[in-house]
Design a binder for these strands. Structure first.
Length: 742
DNA sequence: GCTTTTTGGGTTTTT
DNA sequence: CCCAAAAAGC
């Protein structure tokens, strides 16, 4: 990439772009949809477009609204735009939907009953709050878990619905039809404590833009151009927000959205693929530019991925073409293995061989459907001493000790932050339990003051006695001293002092569990990070909006991550394990969302394959351990959907499996003879088996199992039997593992 | 109020 | 199987 400042008259930054990319950049006026397939230079187009608008003098930096989904994408765009312009651009409206909304909301908070210093709650706070509002309703928290209720609220918020806008018909049967009332109560409570949850950042901002024409007009004047990344992942409220800002009474909407309908994988989080599918209707006269030249992957990989995604029906239609003229590349390997342990063994072995050939480990990734699938790989890598890292596992700011420490900071910055105060009032133990807390809450409510004031009052009036009195007094003093220190020596010193004086650090020093030292390190890291910010408020805002910490220097390690986590990344070699029916596509997905979900799973598979630059290896196991017992599994339908001429099969397991299957009655009726490329088409699909339930074993039948002996069938779930064994107790067994006896 | 036992549930999770 | 959260016990 060119680093030097480019003069507008000779735009050499446009030189090495293909015609479609140029069109996407040079069409600055009017609505534009850029359909950018995987690896077609999307980020480059977006950032160059941003710079192009500035360099042509069409707008000042702050007049462009640029929206991304992740902080990472925002950071990257900021850096690359800065590089193109040869300067660091400040004051940009460039960020995630939530960060941009937070910025707007702080300016106009009073319109929705908040003050500019409102706190942004984390998920722990939200759950605690939901639990509080549920209490008077006396609901069974087993049947209606607070998390689930919060999920209902969130889905409403994703659709831009305030409590008043949720129609009675919308009110699900959740919580006995009380969900709407609970939602209203939750929102009231948030306002009462001057707080916002994540969804509120958007909901409140949308509300302000909807109801305050002058505010909206102000932003209309400000933003001349709007750029949106990952448009296929926008949900309804984000769409409404964008449309409000883009549509104006006079003049065209200079909104450019970049996205790929084939990479929409977040519908379960409220993303509406419809948003991208109907863009041209929403913005009449919109121009559509397709970026189809892929510069990332080999022709074989592209053909495999394209063939797979062609099985989806709801598509805008795009064909990835190889942008590079070099080698055709290797075929996509499909390896059949016996079980999940062999899968890990073979993968690790292949990686060791690649490593010996000089392949950097940092260019290898193992991408799976679900987080727990990393386990066998980790075990194998540990025994081999192969360096790896699990990406996106437990995140820094979600660790308990970090949230605790953050709560201390929040109270320091904002004594009225009751939820934060509540979190740490008894951490470390200060003898305040549920009952004591109740009393203190009551006291605060009588004074119509925050909880911390209630505590101070309770201490003065002698309400609290004994040990608790001493401990709580110490806590209040620690906060008092920290506030003084903050005045005199700044927020960094004050923060550390607070954690020390409150006894929080000592609590972990006294903790003898093996995790304690690591936790102390994390807290140290947190204190270090505070120093990067000019104020405590700035730090808190950052943490509230950013969940991950910046990637540390990328060591030479294999990356293990979920397919979702891999979106936007690329590697030379990609391993895709667990391509089995029920695992991928995930059974639960299929059960809940039917065909739509299947298509989303297929897009996920497409995302997985297109991460690979040179080599993609798909694996599937004949049986997999699920919780306690082994379960047989069939190859994923996606394997069959990849064009046969782009793949290469190997592995013994399927052959053995076929022999085994031939012996057992359940598979006997299946077409086991047809072969394709030396690879036997496996036994019929699980769904086929379900359809005919050919084992013919009924409830109450007496059966014999090689290992567990004799038992009685309690329940039949298609091909799985729930059996009460005389010696071994109750087990779930695949029907073909037992034989019926009389 | 705190610790232990039981039970129940178990995808994906950019913000 | 393995973890988290609720219920029971001290």
């Amino acid at each position: 990439m060119t680093q030097s400042l480019i003069s507008p008259s000779s735009p050499e930054y446009l030189d090495r772009l293909n015609p479609e990319q140029r069109e996407a950049i040079e069409t600055t006026e009017g609505p534009l949809l850029i359909l950018a397939g995987a690896g077609t230079g999307k980020t480059r187009v977006l950032t160059t477009r941003f710079a192009h608008i500035l360099l042509e003098g069409r707008a000042r930096p702050y007049q462009i609204l640029a929206v991304t989904f992740t902080n990472k994408a925002a950071r990257e765009m900021r850096e690359r735009v800065g590089a193109l312009l040869g300067e660091t651009a400040d004051g940009l409206w460039l960020g995630t939907f939530h960060a941009l909304c937070a910025r707007m909301l702080r300016r106009h908070a009073e319109y929705v009953g908040l003050t500019t210093g409102f706190t942004i709650l984390d998920t722990d706070d939200q759950i605690r709050l939901v639990r509080q509002i549920m209490e008077p309703f006396r609901l069974d928290t087993k049947r209606w878990p607070p998390q689930a209720l919060l999920g209902v609220f969130q889905r409403w918020k994703d659709r831009g619905l305030t409590p008043g806008q949720v129609t009675p018909a919308e009110d699900t049967d959740f919580a006995g039809g009380h969900a709407r009332k609970l939602y209203a109560a939750y929102q009231d409570r948030l306002k009462a404590v001057n707080a916002c949850d994540f969804g509120d950042l958007m909901l409140h901002t949308l509300e302000i833009l909807r109801t305050q024409p002058d505010v909206l007009a102000q932003y209309h004047r400000l933003f001349r151009y709007i750029l949106v990344d990952e448009y296929q992942d926008t949900n309804t409220i984000q769409y409404l927000w964008l449309r409000l800002l883009a549509k104006r009474d006079h003049g065209p909407s200079n909104i450019a959205c970049v996205g790929d309908d084939d990479q929409s994988i977040y519908s379960w989080r409220g993303a509406e693929i419809e948003n991208i599918l109907r863009f041209e209707k929403d913005f009449p006269g919109a121009k559509v530019v397709r970026l189809e030249r892929n510069y990332r992957s080999t022709a074989q990989i592209l053909a495999a991925a394209s063939g797979l995604i062609a099985h989806n029906s709801d598509r805008l239609g795009k064909t990835l073409r190889p942008g590079r003229e070099d080698a055709q590349g290797e075929k996509v390997q499909i390896i059949s293995v016996w079980d999940s342990d062999e899968e890990a063994r073979i993968t690790a072995g292949a990686i060791e061989r690649l490593r010996a050939e000089g392949h950097p480990l940092s260019q290898i990734a193992i991408l799976m459907r679900a987080g727990f699938q990393t386990r066998p790989f980790e075990e194998r890598f540990l025994t081999l001493g192969l360096p790896y890292r699990v990406v996106g596992g437990l995140r820094f700011y979600e660790r308990a000790e970090i949230r605790d420490a953050m709560a201390y900071m929040r109270v320091l910055a904002q004594p009225a932050d009751d939820l934060a105060f509540e979190r740490i009032i008894n951490v470390p133990k200060r003898g305040v339990g549920a009952a004591g807390l109740q009393k203190l809450h009551h006291e605060a409510r009588l004074l119509n003051a925050p909880l911390s004031v209630g505590v101070a009052h309770a201490l003065e009036t002698g309400m609290v006695k004994g040990k608790g009195r001493e401990a709580l007094g110490g806590l209040m003093e620690a906060f008092q001293r920290a506030r003084e220190t903050r005045e005199s020596e700044g927020h960094v010193v004050a923060s550390e002092q607070l954690l020390e004086d409150s006894g929080y650090l000592q609590m972990w020093r006294d903790d003898k569990t093996p995790e304690a030292p690591g936790r102390l390190d994390n807290i140290k890291e947190l204190l270090r990070a505070i120093g990067d910010f000019a104020s405590l408020e700035g730090f808190l805002e950052h943490v509230a909006l950013v969940t991950e910490t910046e990637d540390k220097a990328s060591a030479d390690t294999v990356s293990l991550m979920t397919l979702h986590g891999a979106k936007g990344l690329e590697f030379d070699t990609v391993f895709l394990p667990g391509w089995e029916e029920g695992v991928f596509p995930s059974q639960r997905s299929l059960d809940e969302g039917g065909l739509k979900s299947l298509e989303e799973e297929r897009r996920l598979a497409y995302v997985g394959i297109t991460r690979a630059r040179k080599r993609a290896v798909i694996l599937h196991a004949a049986r997999r351990r699920i919780y306690a017992n082994w379960q047989d599994s069939m190859p994923s339908r996606f394997i069959d959907e990849i064009p046969a001429d782009t793949v290469e099969h190997s592995g013994q397991a399927m052959q053995e499996r076929r022999q085994l299957a031939a012996q057992s009655s359940i598979f006997a009726s299946g077409p086991l003879t047809s072969t394709r490329g030396g690879y036997g088409r496996p036994a019929p699909r699980v769904t086929d088996v379900v359809a005919d339930a050919s084992h013919g074993i009924a409830i109450g039948a007496r059966v014999f199992h090689q290992k567990f002996g004799y038992g009685t069938v309690l329940a039949v779930e298609s091909d799985r039997l729930h059996i009460n064994f005389e010696k071994a107790g109750e087990k779930r067994i695949m029907a073909h593992f037992v034989e019926q006896v009389s």
